[in-house]
Each structure stands twice: as structure tokens, then as C-alpha cells.
Amino acid sequence: MKRRNRLVFLGVLALGALAGLGAYTQQQKPLDPFEEAMRQRQMYLETFGVLPGDLFVEEGKELFFRKGPSGKTLEECDFGKGKGVLEGVYAILPKYFSDSKRVEDLETRVYTCMQTVQGYKPAEIKRDEVRAITTYIASFSSKAKIQVVPKHPAELAMYNLGRELWYTRAGARDMSCAICHDQYAGQRVRLSPVRSPKQGLGNEWPAYRFEEDRLYTMEDRINFCYESIAIPKPEFYSDVHIALTVYMLAEATKAGHSFEELPFFTR
């Protein structure tokens, strides 16, 4: 689908979402947000025959096969299971890559390969493009079992950093990830249910959020969390995102969780 069609389409969806949201905050009893998301998802499917997330997958696919300044496409990038393999790679990331000598999540890996394989300069890489390519690649791990098991020393170090970040209380609201997502898992902030890593936190991204009319990757979602607790969001592709993702998904792995249908559709 062309970009312009997509914009029109998303505009219509946003209107629908707004109406839905209005209806659901006006009610006497708050609806279960997940039930509401499923209702909205069904409505979009019946009205348009396609989900918003799928449009990002399509866009990502085009960008994946686009030649960079070096003349290469992202088919030449190793995303964790060898060049050109996309099936199930999202489920094993973040992991250590010997070429970049760094533990990378999928978004960072895309960012790295666009530079080292495709020859783009960092300033030429648009965040929206990385977001779409990430969504395309993640769609090959829809409903896959999460398999993040730190083994390499750099992965273990990243897990430990992630755990430290998880418990760090800072900012004008004295918050940390743990204080809500461990101690109060199962409760709500306003209407939003809060889950712990052991309950599978992190298994739904990338996802289209109908309330925001935007696609969120894991890094986007981590930034959203930091902003909502009065801590300035960390810069994309940083060790902060990667460490937290290793920690959360390693814990979700231990508890035997799988990813949702990716890209997911959520509130």
C-alpha cells in the first residue's frame, strides 16, 4: 500500500479509536483494556480487512529489500541465525554479535547493519524506517517461544546491568521499573494493567497502540515508561534499552512465555 493511502487509512482508524475510547471512558464500569483492544482489533479487521500493524510490516519489507549506498540490501545482514535468516530471530534477541562486538537488540542490529552492510551514515537513518524494518523482521517470530538465555560473558554483563537499571529509583517521582512491575504486578495504573517479566512483560512489542495511533517497538515502549515516571527518555539503540530488554526477556524466558501475534494490537 502506498504511503499516502496508509496515512488516510490511519486517519480513519484514529477517528474510530477516539470514538471507541470516548465510549469506554464514559461508561460506569471501566472495561477491561485488553478486551477493549480485542474489540477494536475486530472492528478494524471487519471494516478494512487489514490491521494497522500489517501496514508497517509491508513498509518494512520494502525497506528491507531496498539497496543502500553499498548496493546491498538487508538480506546481507546476520540477524542472529546467519545471513538472510529471519524466521525466529526476534525470539533469540538481544544477543552478542562478534562483528560489532556488542550485545544488540533487533532495532540496534538493524541500525548497525544499515551502516556496516548498507553504507548509510548514522544521520541518514530515519527512526521510522528502523521501526518498520524491525516490525517486518519481528513478524517472523509471531507467537514464538521467547528464548533469551544469556550465555556469552557480554550477555551476562548486559543482564546484570539490566537488573541494576530495573531497581534504580530516580527522578522527581522516586520511581523504578521494579517498584510497579514486580511489587504491584496484576494491579492497575489508572486503567492500565501492569505486568511483571515473569508474567511475560515485553512479549507484545512491536505493537500498534490504538489509543496513540502509533506503532511502538520495545525501545519506544521503554521510552514511554521512562517519560511517564519523570525520567528523560534514553537515546535509541543505547545499552540502557538493550540491558533492560535482556533482563525482561530472560526473566520471561525462565517463566516459559511466548510472544503474542506480532505485530500485536493493543491499547
Binding site: 529509583r169 530516580a170 521512562y226 528523560p232 534514553p234 537515546e235 545499552d239
Partner: peptide
């Protein structure tokens, strides 16, 4: 180093914990 990798603004807040925040962490 990881906090600094997150950028100046992020690191500034994360590194300016008061005594209570540091103990709780």
C-alpha cells in the same frame, strides 16, 4: 557508562539520586 550511553539528560537524572533513592535501589 551505560547510563551515559543513554544520553546526557537521562544520565543526569539517573546519576543524581539522593541518599534515600540510592539506599532503596
Amino acid at each position: 557508562a551505560a547510563l551515559h550511553a543513554g544520553g546526557h539528560e537521562f544520565a543526569k537524572v539517573m546519576l543524581s539520586q539522593d541518599k534515600g533513592q540510592a539506599l532503596c535501589s
